[in-house]
Design a protein around this nucleic acid. Structure first.
Lengths: 239, 239
DNA sequence: CCTCTTTATAGTCGCACTGACTATTAAGGG
DNA sequence: CCCTTAATAGTCAGTGCGACTATAAAGAGG
């Protein structure tokens, strides 16, 4: 079916949808926009928009990310294609195929509403339900994917600012996985993985509040985490 | 950019491309079709075609898979969405967005050419180069993905018939990864993973050639492989 | 028939990683 | 000045895995 005669295919509208994650108060949040138009007017949805004729889906996703968050550094934030949603009827008006992306932001800027979005807001992931279109499904898939990637990639640093403590890194894992981790073991694992994190050379130490000041680290060059850091199904850390 | 006014978007053609893998003579093969039309007439390409208006990409992929291989059991073979390729200019004539899939077949049937494909052929993966469009890239991505999934899923059984020996299963890993594995260790790992394989209850044994007959196993209910079966970078097994 | 080759299966040994846990250090708060 | 909090250091045992040896059961070839 590679023939391109004019009756061989129907045109589709192609959009991107973004699951933009960040950590606020040690909880995983996702960026949502309130829809201003029908369908689903007044409902919350993942930010997104149409892919323009001269764009790839990746380019469109970066553009939408910049528009929605107000970020100027479009090359910076981690952005990854997830999968494409193409069920007929997922948009009640027309045939829309949507390429979903996940983005990870460190310091979450206050969102500024996009051109036609009534408003944009960070919402705790667990409270984001009843979204427009099939965005509940997309968000769940995105969260699963990010959680799985934490296990065998060094992706967690994408949630952290340029310099961070091991405690902050651990809280990324705990927020995404919804578990608690043993601190000494987490520390041992991260430091034993070459290239995961690099100590900031100066005796730089950060004090955010109480307790012993923690050493600062930067993200290292490694991308994979071998052997992986598996989440063990367990209930809670015995205090 | 969720406004749907008529100037907000341009229509795209949406296609699916399939990387159909199987094992022939202990080597990973991929199904290719020879293009009969311009562009890239006479060149080899991944099978694929347009998504029809009433179809999802998954449905279209199953349809194309059945058309290209002549398989009637469309629910059977493992099929997984990989990612979407949307670079402008990837098709010289028009704006085409393609959703790529990987399919895994056990007993490889002889391919029958699709409607407009001059012919279809199983080609050893290592010899499949110079494909049409961006299919070299898609094929490489698909192979990487399948190789990675063998590490932490029970996907390998999708390459095997309903009943298989552990030696056959091991050859799947060796063909996809391009390595050799230690047989006793592989065996220990597979049997120690609950739900990966189940012994065929009868004293059923298969003799395909020389050597001691091997016990037969079926694919078990497990999908994940935890802890994973990591490929260790090494050169070759000391005979 | 006997031996060699081939493949499957059983088991051993030691190292590396990890989960669970204890101890010590260095800050801030009352 | 003590208590709390958080970071860091270290211990110990169990598990998983790489490397390796040994045995069993078939066919091939003389």
């Amino acid at each position: 079916m590679r023939g391109y005669d004019k009756h061989a295919y129907e045109p589709f509208a192609v959009t991107v949808d973004l699951a933009v994650f960040t950590l606020r108060a040690d909880a995983l949040h996702v960026l949502l926009v309130e829809r201003g138009q029908e369908p689903y007017a007044g409902r919350w949805a993942l930010p997104g928009g149409f892919v323009r004729p001269e764009e790839s889906a990746e380019t469109a996703a970066r553009r939408e990310l910049a528009e929605e968050t107000g970020l100027t550094d479009v090359t910076g934030p981690y952005l990854e294609q997830l999968r494409t949603y193409s069920e007929p009827g997922r948009d009640p008006r027309m045939r829309v195929v949507s390429v979903a992306f996940a983005a990870l932001l460190p310091g979450p800027p206050e969102p500024r509403g996009g051109s036609d979005a009534a408003q944009a807001r960070w919402v705790p992931c667990d409270e984001a339900r009843g979204l427009a279109f099939d965005h509940d499904r997309i968000l769940a898939d995105a969260r699963d994917r990010v959680g799985a990637e934490l296990e065998h990639t060094c992706l967690a640093t994408a949630f952290c600012p340029a310099e961070f403590t091991l405690g902050e890194l651990q809280r990324v894992y705990e927020a995404v996985w919804g578990t608690t981790l043993d601190r000494p073991n987490f520390r041992r694992k991260v430091l034993a993985t070459p290239g995961f994190v690099e100590p900031v050379p100066g005796a730089a130490r950060l004090t955010g509040g109480r307790g012993k000041p923690a050493a600062l680290y930067r993200a290292g060059p490694a991308a994979a985490l071998r052997p992986p850091l598996l989440r063990t199904p367990r209930e809670g850390h015995p205090a």
